[in-house]
Design a protein around this nucleic acid. Structure first.
Length: 561
RNA sequence: GCGCCCGUAGCUCAGCUGGAUAGAGCACCGGCCUUCGAAGCCGGGUGUCGUAGGUUCGAAUCCUACCGGGCGCACCA
């Protein structure tokens, strides 16, 4: 199922029908490959289907193309189809087909660009998943921005999305956290000789320790914890510290516009017996063995580089066992599709988690779950790398960025590059309020359209959609805006299909560019009602598309700036 | 050493899963404000797509090797 408003889908359907009629015995790809053209001389859409069929049909591509053209019925939305070059089929759409997208977009409003591809299927997007040992850093910010935008894209494509955050609240890192807090409670600082080896050094622990000693009560993830005020009660400190830092992280995420549906705790996997049950299942499935006093899983049977220890010689489980138990639970919760957005520095864990799931032998597909990995972010200010924050000490926090450049610019920049690439975050650029800064450039286009409507109102007029004569929208500026509007559903569907968040910022940049050019070239508030209302319909649609696109990024669309 | 990611204009990056002459922005130069917001617009040129092979009608895109950069390679998480 594709969005009805996507012109590309129309061309694909007509083409598939014609090809099937022309070559009933051949296996016609469905949907056939159709793309927007770069050159207007090649029409609006082009397909290489004739070239693809040469082998099977055993004819030359132009001959195949001709047969397809002959089999194609008349459609008012298609002006003509030409055969070009080695055998491309070039589709020239009727102007009315493009104009119709304006009406469709106005009718659809905030829903324009959405589709039902996902058919309501469940998908779990796990992202951020930071451990509660300190404030979120820039890398978590990239994960939050990318993960949340992915979730929004899947929702727009018709999936039933659950956003989940997983954290370890029981392991060695938390033990180290508790020791660091305990040391702070006892008046030590990281520079003292007695400071725990490898302890967390950030200033935020001083605040945490003070809150604990005061007996503050913190609420996080449906839990309420009151500080016991005993500097040596490790269990009480651990519980308080986790709740305190979770609360801080959530405050940062909320400030960033990211809200999770669910939190998964490692301790809960133990408490519910899922870890033990998973170990037993793996043993029962026959993929484990004992060696050097440890219990091993033969992950190499499933593509891992080496086998992995499950239970250490000293007794405890390695972290990857609860990880497998967690993903098994995801599967059993009915998520046949699961996306894990995480930092590329953890890519080494992918093979063993998947191997563990395969070894369970419960029908989980080999490539499940999907992973989207993001590379590191380097923060620059004044041409120099920024490495420290006051609170965290050793790294730049997400909060630092939000405070300094704002939520909108931070979110935009963190999804504007494909996650695979390392990113340089230029604070000066993100803060600048000029055309250099794509966020402001796009938001300004949106605000500018609102300004036009305010002007309309001041002149005692109103937008009358029924009076619009869209056939008067003939300038190259108008054509460009209309074409971009018609592309939006394809862009959203494409970005959702291959999880390419960066496609949305790029599209919005183009859209803003087309609008600003149009604005400067032609006056919208024309005396002729047919033309004036047509132009108002067009820019109202552009405004809607920009707002819808920014919404996918979690970036605001201001009416005034 | 092994594995994953990246290498496209001076800079930052796109490039629609193999298509037709490789695209934007920035930077640089020159123009445009009694007119819907100049946070804007218009004009001016730039490429051994890291290198070398291969696959085919056709490669920035797929395969192999190499070069350069990043990240991983625990009975840590």
């Amino acid at each position: 199922m594709r969005s009805r408003s996507a012109l590309k889908a129309l061309v694909q359907d007509l083409l598939a029908d014609a090809a099937t009629r022309a070559w009933p015995d051949l296996d016609i790809p469905h949907p056939p490959h159709v793309e927007r053209t770069r050159d207007a001389a090649h029409g609006d859409f082009a397909s290489n289907i004739a070239m693809q069929l040469t082998k099977a049909a055993r004819r030359n591509p132009r001959e195949i193309a001709q047969a397809i053209v002959d089999a194609m019925g008349d459609d008012a939305r298609i002006d003509r189809v030409e055969i070009a070059g080695p055998g491309f089929l070039n589709f020239f759409l009727a102007p009315g087909a493009f104009r119709a997208t304006i009406d469709q977009a106005i009718d659809a409003g905030a829903a324009y660009g959405r589709s039902d591809t996902g058919a309501g299927e469940k998908v779990l997007v796990e992202f951020v998943s930071a451990n509660p040992t300190g404030p979120l850093h820039v890398g978590h910010g990239r994960g939050a921005a990318v993960g949340d935008t992915l979730a929004r894209l899947y929702e727009a494509a018709g999936w039933d999305v659950t956003r989940e955050f997983y954290y370890n609240d029981a392991g060695n890192q938390i033990e180290m956290l508790a020791r660091s807090v305990s040391a702070r409670c006892n008046g030590l600082t990281p520079d003292d000789a007695d400071w725990p080896e490898g302890g967390y050094r950030g200033d935020y622990l001083a605040d945490l320790a003070a809150a604990y000693l005061r007996g503050d009560t913190v609420t996080a993830d449906d839990r309420e914890v009151t500080g016991a005020a005993d500097p040596d009660d490790k269990a009480a400190i651990r519980e308080f510290a986790v709740a305190y830092l979770r609360r801080e992280q959530d405050a940062d995420l909320r400030a960033f516009g990211v809200v999770f549906d669910n939190y998964a705790l490692e301790s809960a996997l133990y408490a519910e017996g899922r870890v033990e049950a998973t170990v037993e299942a793996l043993i029962a499935a026959g993929h484990t063995y004992e060696n050097d006093g440890a219990l091993w899983l033969a992950t190499t049977d499933y593509g891992d580089d080496k086998d992995r220890v499950m239970r250490k010689a000293e007794g405890g489980y390695t972290y990857f066992v609860p990880d497998v138990a967690y993903h098994r639970a995801k599967w059993e919760r009915g998520f046949t599709r699961a996306i894990n957005e995480q930092g590329a520095d953890h890519h080494g864990t992918i093979a063993r988690v998947r191997a563990g799931l395969q070894a369970l032998d419960i029908g989980i597909p080999e490539g499940w779950p999907d992973y989207i990995l993001h590379q590191m972010v380097t923060v620059m200010r004044g041409g120099e790398e920024v490495k420290l924050s006051k609170r965290a000490g050793s790294y730049v926090t997400l909060r630092d960025l939000i405070d300094e450049v704002g939520r909108d610019a931070t979110r935009y920049f963190l999804v504007a590059r494909k996650p695979d690439s390392q990113q340089t975050f230029d604070i000066d650029l993100a803060r600048s309020q000029s055309e250099d800064n794509p966020v402001y450039y796009i938001q300004y286009a949106h605000a500018r359209i609102h300004a036009v409507f305010r002007q309309l109102d001041e002149q005692g007029m109103a937008w009358d959609r029924e009076a619009a004569d869209l056939s008067q929208l003939t300038s190259e500026y108008e054509q460009r805006v209309i074409t971009l509007i018609s592309r939006f559903p394809e862009v959203v569907a494409g970005a959702a299909a291959d999880s390419s968040v960066q496609a949305i910022p790029h599209y919005l940049r183009d859209m803003a560019d087309a609008f600003h050019s149009y604005y400067n070239a032609q006056k919208f508030l024309d005396a002729d009602p047919g033309l004036r209302n047509a132009r108002l319909s067009l820019i109202a649609t552009a405004r809607q598309v920009i707002a819808n696109g920014l919404e996918l990024l979690g970036v605001s669309a201001p009416e005034r700036m």
